[in-house]
Design a protein around this nucleic acid. Structure first.
Length: 271
DNA sequence: CCCGATTCCTGTAGGC
DNA sequence: TGCCTACAGGAATCGG
């Protein structure tokens, strides 16, 4: 399930492989993603050189002279760099072929991902315009969490998973961050103290940073551009560990549903 | 504005 | 073994 660390791992994998290379072919085998893949992708990209691969939240931004290609991995998407002749498997929906020698191949079984053309000012694109701060930059802070949460009754877990609060925190890292911060996921966001927000801020930054260092979390589908899994799953404290012992106090981890999503926490360590 | 529920999709796991 | 159902979740969208 690609969250920020998985998308960043993907970015780091594909950027050196395609930056500076020219698109020689675009193959769209299935245009039915979250939104239809633009029919004019080939003519927009043909002959264009990829200038950079950036990331905004969980979106990858492939920069070309004529504009930016937005890619989102949804929940089951992955990007690999493969020789163009590599056998196509089920769910391999799109190839961007570079210099006739390398294909950037999008695989997405559940098709929740997106590939969209954003033009020359992608930050003005509707999908990017209202995103909150990047968690690993100085745009994000404890004060931001504190101020934005005032008067909010939603559970803090829903609050930090909202991309308007901060980008990149999905279901796994939300539970992990709240565990590290010692905060129950059900707490109304508006009841967080300044100190809570300090600990939550630090926890989010630390957990995302550590996950990137491990190449992300592979539970089932996720793989980096070279096909390798991420190893952060070995470091999870609460996610998916219902009934297992808390690493700190041995209390069995509890699970519940918040906003139709599984949440995991230690009732002893988190208040 | 805010918030919770619904929706999209397919593979997998669990129950019987 | 096979069939059925529930569940996984990013995030837009909708209804209250």
């Amino acid at each position: 399930m690609p969250e920020l660390p998985e998308v960043e791992t993907t970015r780091r994998g594909i950027a050196p492989a395609i930056t500076g290379k020219r698109v020689t072919a675009v193959v769209v085998r299935d245009h039915r993603l979250r939104w239809p893949v633009p029919a004019d992708l080939q003519e927009r990209l043909q002959g264009q050189r990829c200038q950079a691969v950036d990331r905004r939240g969980k979106y990858l931004l492939l920069r070309f002279p004529s504009g930016t290609l937005l890619m989102h991995l949804g929940m089951s998407g992955s990007l690999r760099t493969v020789p163009p002749a590599t056998a196509v498997l089920k769910h391999d929906h799109i190839d961007l072929v570079f210099d006739d020698s390398l294909a950037l191949r999008l695989r997405d079984p559940r098709r929740f991902g997106a590939v969209l053309w954003a033009g020359e000012n992608p930050s003005e694109h509707a999908l990017l315009a209202s995103l909150g701060p990047e968690p690993l930059t100085t745009d994000f802070s404890a004060l931001h969490l504190y101020q934005l949460s005032r008067g909010r009754s939603a559970a803090v877990k829903s609050f930090i998973m909202d991309n308007a609060t901060v980008v990149g925190v999905g279901n796994i890292y939300a539970s992990e961050s709240l565990y590290l911060a010692g905060i129950r996921p059900t707490r109304p966001a508006g009841k967080l103290t300044r100190n809570d927000c300090e600990r939550l801020y630090t926890a989010i930054v630390n957990v995302l940073t550590a996950a990137i260092e491990q190449g992300g979390t592979t539970l089932r589908d996720f793989a980096a551009a070279d096909g390798q899994p991420g190893y952060f799953a070995q470091k999870l404290n609460v996610y998916g560990r219902e009934g297992e012992a808390c690493h700190a106090c041995s209390t069995p981890i509890k699970a519940l549903r918040i906003g139709q999503r599984a949440a995991y926490y230690c009732a002893a360590c988190q208040r």
